[in-house]
Structures are given as structure tokens and as C-alpha cells.
Nucleic acid binder design. Structure first.
Lengths: 145, 145
DNA sequence: CGGTTGTTTTGAATAGTTCAAAACAACTTG
DNA sequence: CAAGTTGTTTTGAACTATTCAAAACAACCG
């Protein structure tokens, strides 16, 4: 029975996505929850603390499975390794600092639609739009005065 | 004298950018002109035809120098190697096919401003915005019927 | 034409990620 | 609840795109 109570446990979310519930997967989801945007190495380091036998390749496998299932989202800003985030469902966008590579979330630009409507589709059937804002974060701005 | 006649030769464009005029640079600029979006290997292959002694590393160096000088633009869509294009100056965006990775240009979404104005800047000083539309290109759509 | 500085060659190294086979563990079914 | 099936993780290796570094070289200035 796959009852969706609205506040599924982590294990339940895995099961409803058709994935087996394993310790590495729970640990990765836990490592990503609440945090911002982490690369595979960072997730790996965090997972190892509570599950020291986990391999980096397992983390890659888990991250791939989870983003394939839509439980996490993968972004790949130019110049950074792939980053994973647990905020999903809304199609939010990202600010990336050109100096320190820090990534922060921004809500969709103007409501929802503009982000999905290019001026011409060139025959493409568009599924999603991704917006990346490049600039200097507050911290790097004050450091560069 | 750095007279800008409005139709500078390739060599002149290099010189006005403060770069020395060399055969590999001319060949790379030539290889990129008129073409769409090419990765370093593709540029390398094209350059080799008219300048067989050129090394791949030289091509990387040239591409870095040219995009640093603003003579070409580098884009890095998730899942593809870095691509270079000669269309510059306007801040146009890209359609990327999720099936064949083909990249095409689209003009800026709605006029100009929306692309540069996120809903909240989180303290960032924003320099540019990059929009990537993901979808299926016409060719892959018909193949997937 | 000679000197200086920037560029290219050559050769090697690196980061991030993926692949493959074998060992193993989760869920299913009897 | 035991055994089997299937999906997952481990282990170890490979790979791609890219960068680094030193030496040879060429463009441009005077």
C-alpha cells in the first residue's frame, strides 16, 4: 500500500519512487536535506561520517538514481562539478558567484510562464527552462572593495 | 592606430583585442565562423585541415584567449563538453536537445530585461543571465514517434 | 634586424565521472 | 520465515575533457 500522507518518511519516499530502501540512499538524502548545493565529494564526506563503509562510486550511483527518480535535482553550472539539491518540485533558478562559485536559489523570474517560453522554438518540444544568473556574491563583493 | 571601420578583418579584430595575430588564431576564428556550436575537438579537426601542425592544446589555448577577449563565446551545457560560438554581442540563449545534444540559438526571451532581473538578488551583483531551454529537437521528435 | 614578450609545441598530469564484474542485501513469493 | 530474484554496492580500473609546465618558437616594437 502506497499511502501518501503528505509527510512521507524518507524510506517511504524511496519506495514510492520504486527504489529499494538502502542505508546509502537514506544517508545521501539525509546529507542533502536542508543543505544548499553540494557536489559528490561533499555528499560523500558527509555520508561517510555516519556510514563509513560507503564508497564514492556508491554515492555517484545513489545520486544518479535519486535524480533519475526526481527525488533530488542535479545542476551543472559551468566551471563547477555537478551539484545536487533537495529542493525539487518548483522550477527555481540559481545565482552563481563568478568568484567563489557559491550557488544560491532564486525563485522563478516573473511568475512562471516567461521561463518556459522562448521567442521561437525552432521545432523543439521544450520540457524545461533553466536560468542561471552570474555575478558577485555579497561576501566576494566586500572582499573585492 | 586602431581604426574600427565596422568591417574589420579577422586579423584586425585580433589586434584590437590586444592579441597577437597568429595562424592558429586565424584558423580557429575561421573554423568557428558561420558554424553553430562546436567543441574543442571539432574545432581542432577543422583547424588541422588547413594547418596540420596545430596541436589540440594550442586550440584550447586559442579558444581560451579568444573567449577571454570576447571574440567568441563559450557555453557549457550540462552533459556536453564546452562549446564555442562566434555569435557574440547579443545575449542570446540556447535550446539544447536532450536526446542528441544539438544546440541552437534563440533570441532573448521577452525583450531584454526579464533575462537580467531575478526576483531577489540575495546580495549578488548580477552581471549576466543565461537561459537554457531543454527539449527534443524536431529531428529527434520524428525519430521517436 | 634584434630583443622582448606572448604563443605554441611537446609531454604529462589531473579532476570528475563512468564502467564492469563480483559480492551482497532488499523485497517478494511460496 | 526461508529461498530466490532482482536491484544495489563494492572494488578496481578506465576514460574524457581539460589544464599544467617547460622549452622552442614567432609576432611585433623599436
Amino acid at each position: 500500500m502506497t499511502t501518501n500522507t503528505g509527510h512521507e518518511s524518507t524510506a517511504e519516499r524511496l519506495r514510492s519512487a520504486g527504489l529499494k530502501v538502502t542505508a546509502p540512499r537514506l544517508a545521501v538524502l539525509d546529507a542533502l536535506s536542508g543543505h544548499g548545493h553540494d557536489d559528490a565529494d561533499t555528499v560523500f564526506a558527509r555520508v561517510q561520517q555516519e556510514l563509513p563503509t560507503t564508497s564514492l562510486q556508491a554515492v555517484y550511483g545513489v545520486l544518479t538514481a535519486l535524480s533519475g527518480a526526481g527525488l533530488i535535482r542535479k545542476i551543472e553550472p559551468a566551471g563547477s562539478p555537478a551539484l545536487y539539491e533537495s529542493r525539487i518540485g518548483d522550477n527555481h533558478h540559481h545565482l552563481v558567484c563568478t568568484s567563489c562559485q557559491r550557488v544560491e536559489d532564486v525563485d522563478c523570474v516573473i511568475g512562471e510562464s516567461p521561463c518556459l517560453t522562448p521567442s521561437a522554438t525552432n521545432g523543439f518540444e521544450i520540457h524545461s527552462a533553466e536560468v542561471t544568473f552570474w555575478g558577485l556574491c555579497g561576501e566576494c563583493r566586500s572582499r573585492t572593495v
